[in-house]
Design a protein around this nucleic acid. Structure first.
Lengths: 198, 198
DNA sequence: CTGGAATTAGAGAGCAATCTCTAATACTTG
DNA sequence: CAAGTATTAGAGATTGCTCTCTAATTCCAG
């Protein structure tokens, strides 16, 4: 069966994550990844056909890891609990996974991955489908409406505003203050609350 | 006095802005900037000592242009009007200056400018001072307090959350919905409103 | 122990980007 | 109109990165 792998896929993705989160997208060069693993750059290309493929796989892995908890939160039976859990998940996940959060929050896919590898085409297209569906489902379940505004406000409250707080957490050198989750949750309810009057 | 300039500083910054907003940070290469102006790349270096200096000057110019209106808004005499004006300014400025907003909102200085040029050192350190002071002043004027939480909530309401909406505007292909400014303003008051009860 | 297959090792080709250097050019002042 | 100077023009040195190619190594199966 041949020689056992010394640097497996996950280790390479982890190294790329470290470098991208520390030095930005340009920091995760193939040479730098190899150096961090103590390998020559040629060995990396044995497992990944291109640098873009490494970063694309990292991107997918990171998004999936975040979405797992987010989807569970949004899909809670009680809408009130769903809002609280969704906001809390985004902020606590940011604190607990600082490197992955940094890559996800600070960079866009287009700037991280120059050319999306063909072999992953479908994964990219469907990556956000579940989240989109969960937002629409939330709007329908709680408000009985799927108008553009209803869905848009839900997205603002559960995704965009928590995202802003995450970004602040990442940029700050100090740990997030205890009132932050409350504040973002309050903002979420405020944005959603107006929907009932319209 | 010699030959009249054919490509002046502002034209070079404008070209860099176009390229950075269209293709991301890596798109604004010196060669690309020169090509857009119809000049050889050597001519660019006659006006700017380095690529980093071009992007640094662009960064400063863009921040200043945004801050102008933002500071005027936050400093309005009536705090209620100040909140509304600050939120509205961020969102309308994003719509009215899509290229500059894109550079400001999507990229961090560290990822745009590899090494901040020494000759601009002071400008970088003091760039955000006025905004920081205006946020602190707002918290003091309205709430009579400069505790970390008070200032933090003000920053969340007037900067971070409007920022998130800006980012959404930029990413969407369609113009922002009419309810967006209201929603972000509502969120701002919700975040600030809690302060009175604590 | 031995043959074979997967993996590592390492050098280097090719390319793109920054920055430099010198010569040519056009404008402005006296 | 002449002289001086700021600017443009363009070629090329250098660097760093992606990706390729071949030889060496290690492990497993029989």
């Amino acid at each position: 069966m041949g020689r056992a792998p010394k640097y497996d896929d996950e280790a390479i993705l982890d190294a790329a994550l470290d470098l991208a989160s520390e030095h930005g997208p340009h920091g995760a060069t193939v040479v730098a990844i190899a150096e961090r693993l103590g390998a020559p750059s040629g060995s990396i290309y044995h497992r990944f056909a291109s640098r873009d493929l490494i970063l694309a796989r990292l991107w997918i892995r990171t998004i999936r890891r975040f979405q797992e908890g987010f989807l569970a939160a949004v899909r809670l039976d009680d809408p009130d609990q769903a809002v609280r859990a969704a906001v809390a998940h985004t902020l606590t996940w940011t604190v607990e996974h600082p490197r992955e959060a940094k890559v996800l929050v600070l960079y866009r896919r287009e700037d991280l991955i120059a050319l999306w590898p063909d072999e992953l085409g479908d994964d990219l297209a469907t990556l956000n489908d579940e989240v989109k569906r969960s937002i629409t489902a939330f709007a329908r379940t709680w408000f009985g409406a799927v108008a553009a505004e209803t869905v848009g406000r839900t997205r603002l409250a559960l995704i965009d505003q928590p995202y802003a707080a995450s970004r602040r957490i990442i940029s700050d050198t100090v740990p997030p203050p205890p009132w932050l989750i409350d504040a973002v949750t309050t903002a979420a309810f405020a944005v959603l609350g107006e929907m009932r009057q319209s």
